[in-house]
Write a protein that binds this DNA or RNA. Structure first.
Lengths: 232, 232
DNA sequence: GTATCGCTCGATACACTGTATCGCTATGAG
DNA sequence: CTCATAGCGATACAGTGTATCGAGCGATAC
């Protein structure tokens, strides 16, 4: 019933055992499972089985499944490299943005764990710290606004990319956007004439690289910030 | 096994029954449950019970739980009013942004269903159509980029707001951001001195209205778009 | 060396999930 | 009135997170 967060509770001392365990082992096993088969593959039974242990054994290291997920998320934050100290705010934020995007693409489940609870693990905190520190504006409220807006865009954009990716994967591989439109339902919908702009998008838009689209959007946000808070 | 989407399958004809059923009834019961108790409250058993029916009865109207969730999502899209035809792109996008934010705040579970699968219900499609149509640029690729960026920001920002809201709710109501920092773990972390900027944010930043923060970020994005695609 | 304590591990159990199966029933046809 | 059919929903199954608690074992006390 300890009301403390995972980050507060020390790991239990390692006991001699045929199959040793630790938070690290558990978390990386869980991450491996999630990377390979999605979040559904992460259950106490399956994680424990991957470590040759009984499901209940995990409760010595982790109080709840949500805690395990928190630990997984924090591990991902740990993979994101901080921006160079010498970088100006624009460079710094672009670095962070791409760092988050890359990490989220390596671990597609990451984006699904965003709205669960706030990310307050040590790695998440240092990630927040270095990101905030990359914006050296005088007004701290402006720093918060700027970082908040960039992160909102990044998370939203990455979520979109991952969703699209999943959709393509689940309905015939290597299909392009307009290809999905040829599903019988979509085709009929577009044929109704009620969605002229959508139809134009489907037929006329060039399907561009997702990385380019991400960059373009990021450019909008950074440009907008620049117009408001020009170098003092 | 019909491989068609929900949107493709007509509703079964209504049979005379002591407790009549329809997709609408099911979906609105599910939405009511989700609004009140979160997505966990939405199970076939509970939804059916709310309609005085057995769980299996629902399968006549909906093939799978994911389909039910799709229908719920589409219903939310239906609540968002389209921008006025007379509005310019900036006005139009701001209208849509606030529409989405308001809807997502009314139905906090909405944001959790974003990464499941693409939203292709009729209401989602008309929402997409009117949003795209609000941006009358010549280059259709630019329209996509612009709408994509704004939507990415909106979804990301709303997700952040909801997460924060949930955190506050789950750890003592009416607590402010810095208040959370006084949890023993956070306080100790900040005391290490490893997070100077974060500490400054916690202590010095004025806790502003979330609607204002949303507006500020949205302003960045729209300004950035304006600098790139000025009124032709 | 033995006995006892205490603690940890994990088998079992419980409540819940989504959904496949399939016997009953109730309606419609002849 | 009898029979066929179709849909409803009770039952069942495999899975989930986790509470409980008995067994076994290591350490300590005498």
């Amino acid at each position: 019933m300890s009301n403390e967060a995972v980050w507060d509770r020390p790991e239990p001392p390692s006991k001699p055992s045929p199959t040793p365990l630790s938070r690290d082992l558990i978390v990386s096993a869980a991450i491996r499972l999630a990377d390979e088969g999605g979040l559904d593959e992460v259950s106490f039974r399956k994680v424990a089985a991957a470590l040759n242990a009984g499901p209940m054994r995990l409760y010595g290291y982790v109080e709840t499944k949500d805690e395990l997920l928190d630990l997984m998320v924090d591990e991902v934050y740990g993979e994101i490299t901080p921006p160079a100290k010498s970088a100006d705010w624009r460079e710094g934020l672009r670095h962070v943005a791409h760092g988050v995007r890359d990490a989220a693409k390596r671990h597609e489940w990451f984006i699904d764990l965003l709205s669960n609870r706030p990310h307050q693990g040590p790695h998440a905190l240092t990630h927040m710290e270095t990101t905030l520190a990359a914006v050296r504006f005088d007004d701290i409220d402006q720093v918060l606004d700027v970082v908040g807006a960039v992160m909102a865009y990044v998370f939203g954009a990455v979520r979109g990319e991952i969703t699209e990716l999943r959709a393509e994967r689940s309905s015939g591989l290597t299909e392009e956007q307009w290809q999905r439109a040829s599903g019988p339902y979509m085709q009929r919908m577009l044929a109704t004439g009620r969605f002229p702009t959508l139809a134009r998008v489907m037929h006329e838009s060039s399907d561009r690289d997702s990385a380019v689209r991400f960059e373009t959007g990021l450019g909008y946000v950074l440009d907008g910030i620049a117009t408001r808070h020009n170098p003092a």
